[in-house]
């Protein structure tokens, strides 16, 4: 479980996050939604330690990340897997080497064990027979899947996904969503997904956090989202006529 308590972050004169308090539960896909510029990515970067918050705490199963020394932070970081919006695969490494990279750095395994583990992770995301290819030779969807394989290589306790569906076709997008959900439930990870994809939110939302103007504006699950009367949330999620129709249809079923 990850707890964020009173987290604030400012860049120069711009107050990006104000007093965010949220709990991200274990074994469920926690989604963070909000307009562009609402502070979603900054929140994720504060949680994983790429930005230092001006105020507030981030607790990883009770461990206050920003108050730990470098060695203790590294221990937590090795428990984190992250899927980036751009996949962030290393261009100079093959698919297999990309997935093996965290194992090489930290796992203390033999070469054969590393290859076995990396191949297992690649099979888990349905990438088979592509070991020797370089990231540039893969499609966007495949790159995302290799990114997920790398993120789960070390059996992470915490999984972060920054816009996992961006730039993907609807079918691949659904596959990636399902994969993240399966991995979260199978390994009991605390998963945080930053997303713009409202289909994904309405389809799979278990614990949704809506950020608006850098504040935690609303939290709940998909049922609560459909029924919510919160003006800003409804304006954001049901911006299109299609989504409004879908809402009416789904509310009838709920």
């Amino acid at each position: 479980m990850i707890e964020v308590i009173g987290l604030s972050k400012r860049f120069g004169n711009a107050q990006v996050l104000t007093d965010i308090t949220a709990t991200f539960a274990k074994g469920v896909v926690n989604q963070v939604i909000g307009k562009s510029g609402s502070g979603k990515s900054v929140l994720a970067k504060c949680i994983v330690g790429l930005h230092r918050p001006d105020a507030g705490r981030v607790l990883y199963d009770g461990r206050p990340f920003h108050e730990l020394d470098l060695g203790e932070k590294r221990v937590i970081r090795q428990e984190i897997g992250m899927l980036f919006q751009s996949s962030a695969l290393f261009d100079s490494m093959t698919v297999l080497d990309n997935v093996m990279f965290p194992l090489r750095m930290f796992a203390g395994m033999t070469a054969a064990e590393m290859v076995k583990r990396a191949r297992f992770c690649l099979e888990r995301v349905n990438i088979v027979g592509k070991d020797a290819l370089y990231p540039a030779e893969l499609s966007g969807g495949m790159q995302k899947r290799v990114g997920i394989a790398r993120a789960i290589a070390m059996n992470p306790k915490y999984l972060f996904c920054d816009e996992p569906n961006s730039g993907l076709d609807p079918q691949t997008s659904i596959l990636i969503d399902e994969l993240i959900k399966e991995i979260t439930e199978e390994y009991g990870t605390t998963t945080i997904v930053i997303t713009h994809d409202m289909n994904s939110v309405i389809e799979t939302g278990q614990n949704i956090l809506f950020l608006h103007t850098g504040r935690c504006w609303w939290t709940g699950d998909r049922k609560a989202l459909l029924a919510s009367e919160n003006e800003e949330l409804r304006a954001f999620v049901f911006a299109s006529e299609l989504m409004r129709q879908a809402r009416r249809g789904l509310l009838g079923q709920v």
Binding site: V48, G49, L50, K73, R74, V75, R77, Q78, I80, M82, F84, Q85, S86, A88, L89, F90, D91, F101, P102, M105, F106, F160
Partner: peptide
């Protein structure tokens, strides 16, 4: 391309 961020997050 966020590859340095990826390294940092891995520790």
């Amino acid at each position: 391309k966020e590859q340095i961020d990826a390294l940092d997050i891995m520790g």
